[in-house]
Design a protein around this nucleic acid. Structure first.
Lengths: 265, 265
DNA sequence: GCGTTCTTGTCCATATTATGGACAAGAGAC
DNA sequence: GTCTCTTGTCCATAATATGGACAAGAACGC
C-alpha cells in the first residue's frame, strides 16, 4: 500500500487505478462473450476463461442482461453480446482510420494474390478480424469472418502481432491467455516458439491453420511509434502455398504493410 | 432487506439484481458519453447528468480509459466512447432486423415525401437515430445524424415513442431524464404535455424542432407485444409542413409504420 | 499583477458493496 | 436409479467503492 504513494508521479503509465475491480471484471466478461459472436458462450466457459468465481460471473452477466448489454439465447442458454453494444458504438465515426487507410492495399493485394485476405487488429489480449476480401481463386478459406475474435497467439495474425512487439510484452500477453489456449489445442511454449520464428522470418506463418488443411501468412503493420497496429493475412488451402509461392505472397504482404504504415503515419 | 426474500419467485421481472452498483454506474456514464458522439462530454456534464459524485465519475471514467472503452480528447479534455466499443459490437450480426425490415419503407416514404427521414429507436432512456434518408427537395434538415442520441422526450421521435407506451412507464422515463432536459431548454411538464397531445393526434409533432425553424412529425412502430420499437420521423423547414401537408405526411408515415410492424412481427 | 469562478484531479476514513465458499437444483448420460 | 455435467442462489465476511473535503489548474475580468 506504500507502493502507491511512492509511484505517485508516474502512475498513469505504470500503476492501474484502484477502486473499480467490478468494472474491470465486467469488461473481462464482455470480451469473452465477444469471442462467442452470435452463438454466445456458456457460463462455465466464461468462468474458465476469466478465472473468476461462479457467483461473480453469474452476477455480472445477469446485471449486464438487465442493462441490455448482454443477451441470453433461448434454447442454448448461452450468453452473448447484446443489442446495446452496437448502439453505444454508433457514437463513434465509422469506418475507422485504419480501415480507410488499408482499403486500397487490401484491394490491390487481393487482386494480385487471389486468395482470401484478412485485416486483423489487436484488442487487449485478443485478435479481432476487422476486414476480409475474397479472392478470385475458386477455393477460398471463408471460415474466418469479420468480427472473429481469438486469443492473441492462436492465429498467424496473432503470432505476427506478437512478433512485432517487445519480447517481454508479448510473453506477458501469451501468459495471460494461457487458460484460453487449451480450447485451441495449443500452449504457451508452442506460441512463443512460433513468435520467435516469425521474428526471424519477418512474417508470421502457420503450416497448420485453425482450419484443417489450410496455411496462413501474416505481416504486421506498425504505428509510427513502433506499436503493432494490425496484421494482414492470406489464408489458402495448404497446397496453394508451397515454399516458392509463400515467398511471393509474403513479399506482396510486406510491401502493402509498409504502404499502410505510411498512410496511418 | 426482507423484501428481497418475499419477492423471490418474481424477481426477474420486478426486482433489480444487487451487488453490481459499480457496473451499473459505469454503464450510466457510458450512455452519457455516447450522447456526446465524437466530440465527447466534459466531466462536469457527466456528473450533472448521472447525479453521481465527482470522485466516482472520475474514477469510473479513468478506469474505462485504461481499459480502452473510453477515450480522452487531446485539447478539449472531453471524454468520449473509445475504440473498443465498436470492436465489441462486431460480435453481433449487422445490420439489425429492424434496419432490414424498415429499409423498403424508408425508401418508399423518402421518395414520396421528399424531405429528410429518420429511423429512431429507444435505448434505455434515450432515443438513438439508427438510419437516415435524404430526400430530393433542395432544402434538407441534415443536422441529425445516424448515432445521434438524446434523452427520450426532447425530439418528436422521443415524444412519439413515449406516447406509444403505457402512461405510467412514460412518466417514469421522463422523470428520470429531468436533469438532462435543462440542456435542451425543456422540462418534465412540457414533455408530458407533448406526449399527451401525440396520443390524441396519433403521431408525434414538434412545431419547433431541435433545429431552429424546422418542424418534425413522427409515428411510432410497435413490436407484436405492444412495446414501442422505434419511430419514423420527417423533418423539414417549417414552411414546408403546413396543416394540409402535415396531414399528408402523417398518413404516409402511419401507413409505412404499420408495414414495418408487419415485417418485424 | 490578483481575485473570482470555472474546471479536473486526489486523498483516505468509512460504510456499503461485491465477493466466494458452500449448497441446491436441474439436465443428460448410461 | 447414480453419476456428472451444467446453472443458479444464499449470506457472512472481507474488501471494495464511495464521497466529503481539499488541491490545483485554467480562463476570465479588471
Amino acid at each position: 500500500m506504500d507502493k502507491r504513494r511512492s509511484a505517485k508521479s508516474v502512475r498513469s503509465a505504470v500503476e492501474p487505478r484502484q477502486g473499480a475491480q467490478a468494472i474491470r471484471r465486467a469488461l473481462a466478461v464482455l470480451r469473452i462473450l465477444a469471442a462467442g459472436r452470435e452463438e454466445g458462450v456458456p457460463l462455465a466457459e466464461v468462468i474458465r476463461a476469466t478465472a473468476l468465481t461462479r457467483p461473480t460471473v453469474h452476477r455480472i452477466v445477469h446485471v449486464l442482461i438487465e442493462e441490455g448489454i448482454v443477451e441470453r439465447h433461448g434454447r442454448s442458454g448461452r450468453y452473448a453480446i447484446g443489442n446495446q453494444v452496437p448502439e453505444l458504438a454508433l457514437a463513434r465515426p465509422r469506418p475507422s482510420r485504419l480501415l480507410v487507410a488499408a482499403n486500397p492495399s487490401l484491394q490491390r493485394a487481393s487482386a494480385e494474390i487471389g486468395d482470401t485476405l484478412f485485416l486483423t487488429v489487436r484488442t487487449g489480449n485478443d485478435t479481432l478480424c476487422v476486414d476480409r476480401r475474397i479472392g478470385v481463386y475458386p477455393i477460398q478459406v471463408l471460415s474466418i469472418e469479420v468480427g472473429a475474435r481469438r486469443p492473441l497467439g492462436v492465429s498467424s495474425a496473432g503470432v505476427a502481432i506478437l512478433a512485432a512487439m517487445p519480447a517481454q510484452e508479448a510473453r506477458k500477453i501469451v501468459a495471460a491467455n494461457e487458460k484460453r489456449f487449451e480450447a485451441y489445442r495449443t500452449d504457451v511454449a508452442t506460441v512463443l516458439g512460433e513468435v520467435t520464428a516469425a521474428r526471424r522470418l519477418g512474417y508470421g506463418m502457420r503450416e497448420i491453420g485453425l482450419v484443417q488443411g489450410t496455411k496462413s501468412i501474416s505481416t504486421w503493420i506498425k504505428t509510427p511509434d513502433g506499436q503493432p497496429a494490425a496484421a494482414m493475412t492470406v489464408s489458402a488451402v495448404r497446397t496453394r502455398l508451397g515454399p516458392r509461392r509463400e515467398q511471393e505472397v509474403a513479399e506482396i504482404l510486406l510491401r502493402e504493410a509498409r504502404i499502410i504504415e505510411q498512410a496511418i503515419g
